[in-house]
Design a protein around this nucleic acid. Structure first.
Lengths: 226, 226
DNA sequence: TTTTTTTGTTAACCTTTACTTAACATTAAT
DNA sequence: ATTAATGTTAAGTAAAGGTTAACAAAAAAA
């Protein structure tokens, strides 16, 4: 079920609930980490940098609303989605929670399908996370650290120029990279290589991965399309 | 109360409800427009380009879920927030609504303060619209980064000169571009091409998108009209 | 080191597409 | 009605990219 690379942190003081939520999120393909109270949650959040945090409200040491406010004060979590998941169903609590900076407020008992629908709705707005070192686009995972490309359960070790070219194109899927830009970013400003050089490397990538991914925009350059 | 400049479209077939919601949104400082059913809603949305749309589900002519799906198919509304506001409180309806592409699902009866808290929560995530590199005019979206033109749910990849010509004309809708100006901006001052060349490219654009958008101003040049 | 293999670049040629033009038709203005 | 401007079409031309093979350079292996 490895289909998305979003990471979700679940914070609740009841282990059974944490486990139940984590199980459902993992089944959906999310990467899940957990914490048992607010303070613990903040610590894990700082380490794991999740895309979304699910917070119980009533917790020992630091309650959910305070945790949310604390997180929101830290610019690191400006774009992190926060969802309250609580037994407190009254209007006042919900308003308080949302005004504390939360993105959603879901009332227990937990209905797994509904929870997932809401989580999915929130996450589909999130721009694909820019994790340096790894870059996932469509069927591709570009591992800059290992200079490896994973594609459809296979992994390829490409020559350097090919790798850098693919990495450039996939760094902004859809964007057309001008030939100049490609030369500058892949070959640098010092070296001057002929015009056909780019084409030859594009060709090699197409031979490896098929003709469907790299699109020529005549007169401009190339783009990666998923 | 003019504190934010977000525009919200309220779609519901019950005038009393529309008025009640609109009143509360206006009090909060939002710019509000309204529609009475799905079809009407789509028409108004295309004209007003709201940041957020509140949809009732049970409506004559086109129900809320269908309206939402229709909107989501149009790239113009890719970043528009959609919220269902409905009497249907069962889990299945809610899941269906969220999976249709909605960002939130709120159950009637309406609690004004809670509604506003949720609307505010959604809108504070909205990046300031008008992404540079994208040019939206009427039914057209000119994507300079991807060299793509979106038009009525289709997208077109035009040859360079055609793209640049359309991009020039749409950059100031209504303004008449003199033939000289077109030659300078699209062909540059160096190249000198015959007079009929412009016409041929205009013709190709008209073949693609219909004769209604590019207007000839005899003796002067051309303009784009929506 | 020398040899072998892999990777990078280039040149020559081929293919495709976009662009331009010329000739003629049509339209609009005076 | 006449004229000037624009519309249309098809054909020719130029430009851009694709392909291949040969060679050079670098890296790895012996």
């Amino acid at each position: 079920m490895e289909k998305n690379n979003f990471k979700i942190l679940v914070v609740d003081d009841e282990p059974d609930i944490v486990e139940f939520i984590a199980y459902n999120l993992k089944k959906e393909g999310y990467d899940v980490c957990t914490a048992n109270d607010g303070l613990d949650g903040i610590k894990i959040a700082e380490k794991e940098k999740p895309d979304l945090i699910i917070l119980d409200i009533m917790m020992p040491r630091l309650d959910g609303v305070e945790t949310c406010e604390h997180l929101r004060r830290n610019p690191m979590f400006k774009n992190t989605l926060i969802v309250f998941l609580t037994a407190l169903g009254d209007e006042q609590s919900e308003i308080k929670g949302l005004n504390a900076g939360a993105d959603d407020y879901i009332v227990k008992p937990i209905k797994p399908k509904l929870l997932l629908s809401r989580i999915n709705a929130l996450l589909r707005r999130l721009q694909p996370s820019e994790v340096p070192g790894k870059n996932q686009i469509g069927d591709f995972i570009i591992d800059m650290e290992q200079y490896l490309v994973h594609y459809k359960n296979e992994h390829y070790s490409l020559p350097r120029k090919e790798f850098e070219l693919l990495n450039l194109l996939t760094s902004k899927p859809g964007k057309v990279f001008h030939r100049d830009e490609i030369l500058n970013k892949v070959w640098g400003t010092e070296v001057i290589v002929g015009d056909r050089t780019i084409d030859v490397h594009i060709r090699k990538l197409r031979q490896r991965f098929g003709d469907d991914h790299i699109v020529t925009v005549k007169g401009i350059g190339y783009k990666f399309d998923s």
